[in-house]
Design a protein around this nucleic acid. Sequence first.
DNA 1: CTTGGACCTGACAAC
DNA 2: CGCGGCAGGTCCAAC
Length: 307
Amino acid sequence: MTLIYIDLKRYFSFDLKKCMHSGQIFGWKNFGKKWYGFLNKVPVCVSQEENKLIVVSNKSITEDDIIYFFNLDEDVDKINKKIDVNDFMEKAIELYCGIRVLRQDPVETIIEFVCAQNKNIPAIQKTITEISKRYGEKAEMNGITFYGKPNIRKIAKSKLSEILETGIGYRAKYLLSTAEKISEDSTYVDKIRSMEYFSALNAMTSGKMKLYGVGLKVADCILLYGFYKLEAFPIDVWILRAYHYALKGFYDENLLSVNGFRKTKLSRKEYLLMGDVARKVFGKYAGYAQLYIYLASRSLFGGSKKF
DNA sequence: CTTGGACCTGACAAC
DNA sequence: CGCGGCAGGTCCAAC
């Protein structure tokens, strides 16, 4: 039994709930203030009390593991300063201060975001939980059962019909193909890790290393949340809705409209261009800016679904 | 190179 | 209470 208290006063502003609700992590179970999930392949229960982060586990885990996973020692003051380029960003930073880009396992993020496409958050969580249940490990703490750590090789070896039982829908063939590809090449993840952002994005979405079912947006999510490549700026429908506010004046607004209406779909070229604008404005912290914009957009346009 | 459909499934709002 | 449109996109075929 491990019990770790981390004094958050030693770090920059941190908010566990905001991190867990930021759309970058799925499959953790939430009861009240407690979150159950796998951290560095170890089942844990995490909670926050004001200036303390509390992590409980019945397996071995260190304070450093936790600091690393939650990126506690990230200099977010510096980042926030850099991306605070207008009133919109200032407000978003103020509202969602305490957020971090987490350091999840790369393979798990690949599974997560292949499944997440064209689904809403409750549906994503349901599917990820089902996948973890079938292809991952079971854990129990405080009488609560939860699952995590889905095994990519196990997925690669299973049948399409089996994967379909998770509620994943038409993405089943994407997941199977991607699982096969990563399982075949044991160096796949390391190769992506060692590449700089653009090479990695291109590798995952085209050519020999292309993953079936991984387009630009999903690849960006994987690179940001799974590989901690902060230049990644995933553009989904929420970013598209708020782009006009977050990056007003930094780009040609005709790019985002057709006959006066906001575009709902981007071509590859447009997607890359809009990302480049964000990278130019936010520098190497585009990924952090994306998190703030995403959350602000959800609260602005998300109706009852806002956090 | 760009564009419009199709696509599994389910939580959700609007009647 | 059941129905229809939509959801953190991507693939594919056809211009």
